[in-house]
Design a protein around this nucleic acid. Structure first.
Lengths: 131, 131, 131, 131
DNA sequence: GTGGTCTAGACCACA
DNA sequence: GTGGTCTAGACCACG
C-alpha cells in the first residue's frame, strides 16, 4: 500500500481510498477479511488509531463490517443489494453534473449545499415510500 | 451540558445527541459557532479527542461545518434556496441520480463519499484546465 | 479564480498553483502586476495573510518579485534566462522518472531524499563551475 | 537563543539563521527534534507564528522535516546512501535532469516546486491505478 | 502534546 | 494605495 506522509491529504483518507479501490477492483473479495489493524499499521508505519479511523469510515459506508473477534470483512454486495456497478454509474453521473455546474460558474461550496439538500430530500422520500 | 460517564452510550454519542438537540431547538442558531473543542472538553472534563469525534459525526451529517481558522458553525439550511437557473438544473439532476442510486440499494453514506470524490476530482481537473 | 475552502489542500497552495498556471499560460505577462493582496483576498473571500503566504512562495521561487510600494510583478524570464519551455521539459522528465521509481516500489519519502541529495549536489557542482 | 527585536532584520530570519548555524555546527544533530514551536516562542518571547515562519523556511530548504504529530526533525543526510539498484538509477536520472535545468537557468527553488508537483501528481495517479 | 493552517486586526516602510 | 511583519487566538490531523 502506497502512503505519502507528507501529503496534505490525511493519512486515514489515503488508506480508506486505497482500500475502496481494492474492494472495487476485486483485490479484496466479498466475505474476505481485511488486513488486521495492527498488521496494516505496521506495514505502512503509522499509528493503529489512524488505520482504525480509515476502517471506521469504510464501515459507516457499508463497504466492510466487523465480525467480533475475527476481524473486518468485505460485505457481500450482491447479497446486500447494491453492486459496485451501480456505484460506478452513480459516480460517473455525479462527475458529469458537477463538471457542468463548475463550468457554469457554480462554486464548489454551493454544489455541496445543493447535494446535501438533494440527498436529504431523496432519503426522506424513499423512507416515506418504504413505510 | 450533562454527560453520564457511567452510561453504556458512548460519551461522544451523548455529546452529539445534545448538540443535535440544541441545534434543532434553536439554542445554537444557523451561522453561529459551536463551543470550541477544547473549551467544551474542559467544561465536561473529557478528552478533546472525544469531543472531536462527536463533532466529526455532526459534520458528516451536514448539521455543522468547519470554517478553517475560525471554528465550527451551524449550517444555514434556509439560506439554501437555489437561485440561478444553473443551480436549479444542477440540483434537479443531482436528485434524480441520488434517487436512482438509493433505489439500487446504495447507502446514503456511500453516496456522500462518491460525491465527495467526484467533486474533488472535478475541482482539481478544472484547476488544471484553467487558462 | 476557483478556490475550494473544504479541500485538504491548503488554500494558499491552491492560490499559488493557479497563479503559476496563469503565468505559465501567459494570462499574467512579464512586468505586469499581479492582483493586489487585498483585492484578491476580497475576490476569493479569504484573509489577506493567506494570499500573502501564496505570494511569498511564488517570490521565493523567483516567478514574481515585489517592487516596494507598487506591487508584485511577474519577472521577465526572457531577460533572466530560464524559459517556461525549459521548465516544462524539466517537469515532464521528473514525472517520468518518478513514475518509474514508484512502479519499482521506491517510496515517495525515499524519492524526496534522493531528489534533495541530487539537487544539492548539482547546485554545489554548478556553483563550483561558476567560480 | 539571542534575538534583537529592534534589528531591521525580521525576527523570523534571525531565528532561521541561528537554527541553521546550530545544525551546521552539530548542536542539533540529525534525527534530533528541534525545540517545539511553542516552547521556543515562549523562550524568546515572540508569537508562535513567528517561529513557525522561520521553521517554514528551514523546511523548504530541506534542512529539517516535520513528522506529523511529533515535531520537527533535523534531516539525516547521511542515512541517505542509495541502496537498491532502482534507487541508484532513479538518483542518477534525477541528477542529470537537474543539471540540465540548472544550466538552462531554472532556479533551485523552482526545481523543488516542479518536483513537488510532479511527485504529488504521480502518487495520486498511482493510487488511482492501484489494483 | 506536536506542527500546519487560517482569521482578525495591528503596525511599519515605501511610493 | 502597496507589500511585509507581527500578535492573538482559533481549528485541524496526528501520536
Amino acid at each position: 500500500m502506497l502512503i505519502d506522509p507528507k501529503s496534505p491529504v490525511p493519512i486515514y483518507q489515503q488508506i480508506a481510498s486505497q482500500v475502496r479501490l481494492r474492494i472495487a477492483s476485486g483485490v479484496y473479495r466479498p466475505n474476505e477479511s481485511l488486513p488486521s489493524l495492527r498488521s496494516l499499521a505496521a506495514e505502512i508505519k503509522v499509528n493503529p488509531n489512524t488505520v482504525q479511523k480509515a476502517y471506521d469510515e469504510l464501515t459507516r459506508e457499508g463497504l466492510v463490517e466487523s465480525r467480533r473477534g475475527s476481524g473486518l470483512f468485505v460485505v457481500d454486495r450482491a447479497a446486500a443489494g447494491a453492486t459496485t456497478g451501480d456505484e460506478k454509474r452513480c459516480q460517473r453521473e455525479l462527475s458529469e453534473i458537477i463538471a457542468n455546474a463548475l463550468r457554469a460558474g457554480v462554486l464548489p461550496e454551493r454544489i455541496r449545499t445543493l447535494f446535501r439538500e438533494a440527498l436529504d430530500g431523496e432519503v426522506a422520500a424513499s423512507t416515506r415510500r418504504a413505510t
